[in-house]
Nucleic acid binder design. Structure first.
Lengths: 148, 148
DNA sequence: TTGGAGAACAAGACTAGATCTCAATCGTAT
DNA sequence: ATACGATTGAGATCTAGTCTTGTTCTCCAA
């Protein structure tokens, strides 16, 4: 369990994709690099806009296709956080893992982490009639600004 | 804190609605009664279909309006379980509370309950910078049928 | 009991997130 | 270099959810 050489998530993703015999196209690279720079979840539309504004426009269909692919390989996690709009974030082992607080008043989404909760989920996953691969926890309520 | 007389969720909901000075229309009654007969979450479309097939057709706009209203009064909980489609279920205190396992292969949604998990969430809710009112937990993976 | 104010309702136009199609292009193994 | 399959983008299409509008119904007070 020694130190791994530092490797970006994007590099890791590229490696996994290569192992799965995928060609490496420009659209996919752009999405990977954008995702790698984020620390919380983005929607497909936000990704589309960011890429159009920034480095390289990518067709909407490509974005959804890439996100789908990455999700199937467990490289991103797809979240149904609040509205009827999916969000995606890089699936980093350990340190990046977090869940979300959603303010039902103003709609803000804030990430949080909690080791004890992770522990409880870990235990639970063994008791449940399913091979658990991911979990998603959303707390709803009123954020500090809104509860005054 | 004694025993309450047995009261259906629908009756409870009607009472709360009355307290909030809402008139009582036919569409809302139909939705209430349908929801009361379910033990897991329904989507708005499923509700629309069930009502059209069954007792009394109700306009789609009305269904969403009613569900919204019920959600604001905490009489139903809105869930973003799997696909980009919200699901709603009666919010019963205690005994009816549960969470969901989603099989990413076949899409089945199964409810489960777990006191320890509820406990962990309860603790967590105090540590977190938000007044927590609801929580939603979804475990993803492969169900028993699909993991063979 | 009746009349009126405002709540509830239905139909359907509309929006926006997501998917599908298909022809053109690109990557890579040979 | 070539061939073949993977990748891509434009735009059509689908569908959950929202908005608009005119009508109907509930409740309450006279």
């Amino acid at each position: 369990m020694g130190m791994h050489p530092p490797e970006t998530w994007a590099a890791h993703a590229r490696r996994v994709l290569a192992q799965h015999k995928r060609h490496s196209g420009a659209a996919r690279q752009a999405v990977l690099e954008l995702l790698d720079r984020q620390n919380c979840a983005l929607s497909a539309i936000e990704i589309e806009d960011a890429l159009r504004a920034g480095q390289r426009p990518v067709g909407r269909a490509s974005i959804y296709r890439v996100l789908d692919e990455l999700e199937r390989l467990h490289l991103v996690q797809k979240l149904q956080v609040a509205q009827a709009m999916a969000r995606y974030e890089p699936h980093r082992s350990g340190e990046g893992h977090h869940h979300h607080l959603v303010c039902d008043n103003c709609g803000t989404v804030t990430p949080f982490t909690d080791p004890e909760l992770e522990n409880a989920i870990e235990q639970l996953s063994r008791r449940v009639p399913m091979r658990v691969e991911e979990h998603e926890i959303v707390l709803h309520g009123a954020c500090q600004d809104c509860s005054n």
